[in-house]
Design a protein around this nucleic acid. Structure first.
Lengths: 151, 151
DNA sequence: CAATTTTAAGACCAAATAGTCTTTAATAGG
DNA sequence: CCTATTAAAGACTATTTGGTCTTAAAATTG
């Protein structure tokens, strides 16, 4: 459903929400290792996310990426929109352009309600809230892949 | 979520379920026009579906594609598996290979239950049952795009 | 059995996504 | 102010998916 890029983006931003701050910046090398994502690809992606004001960065020694206040008030939906656009997410499961509640395809009501709920979830919660939730639920619910690795 | 090919495949097979029989075969040209799908692409796709025993065909004048008894007892899930494989469908929303109920990613419980329900729906109903349902619900619920076009 | 119509098969081309590499610019620290 | 370190920028390559085209083979009809 999401592109690799969007998946990487969401995971990176949640990672930065958990572990970075304006004074504790994180280099792409470390992020890519912890998230098991190709480093050059991630670098370019974070660059894009920077342009969309979803992450912050600074160059030079002790530079790297982090999230500021503004960044933390974005949503997962913002990330998806920036990286993949809305089209793929909203499109009919069978690819019919005319599909809607009034004019549904044969699987519309099997699929559509769920997509609405997921979308609402992703729109309604900020990155900050999301990361609080991850912390609260502990390691079981956390980004296991890199939580374990992070020191 | 599904590839174009899988979407075309599902729509084509439901179309054949509604309008074809062993004596009433349908040519790729007609199918592609009614479904608004590129004809050569569809031809190749139907060829593959034939190999997987999801559709039947015969060559020559008055030839074309149709569904036999066996074909009609397949499920939408069978189509998805044949065309796209199971991987994409079962994979974690954020792309984590370790993600599971025991070891969930941050969005696992937002997404996973829905996928299970959808999958169960698609596994549990035969093409024959599906097409009955489409007929029963009338044109409103039907494959509008081609239902309107089909004479 | 010849002509025509249709799928079968497979080589081919195009576009999107995924991923790499190299050069430049900014910044911190000695 | 020089050097090292980091992101920014953009050109480049690879892989996958989507889609086309051409030739062969099967079946029907006269």
């Amino acid at each position: 459903m999401l592109s690799n890029a969007a998946q990487y983006a969401i995971r990176s931003i949640l990672y930065l929400a958990l572990y970075s701050s304006a004074t504790q910046r994180i280099r792409t090398k470390k992020i890519s290792q912890d998230l098991e994502v190709p480093q050059p690809f991630l670098a370019k992606l974070l660059q894009r996310l920077g342009g969309a004001d979803l992450v912050s960065s600074s160059k030079g020694p002790n530079g790297g990426f982090y999230l500021n206040k503004t960044n933390r008030n974005k949503t997962v939906w913002d990330i998806i929109v920036t990286v993949d656009g809305t089209e793929k997410f909203n499109q009919c499961f069978l690819g019919l352009h005319t599909c809607s509640d009034n004019n549904p395809c044969p699987v519309h009501f099997n699929v559509s309600p769920f997509k609405q709920i997921i979308k609402k979830d992703f729109k309604g919660k900020t990155i900050a809230q999301f990361s609080e939730e991850i912390k609260k639920r502990g390691t079981v619910l956390s980004l296991k892949d890199f939580d374990a690795l992070h020191k």
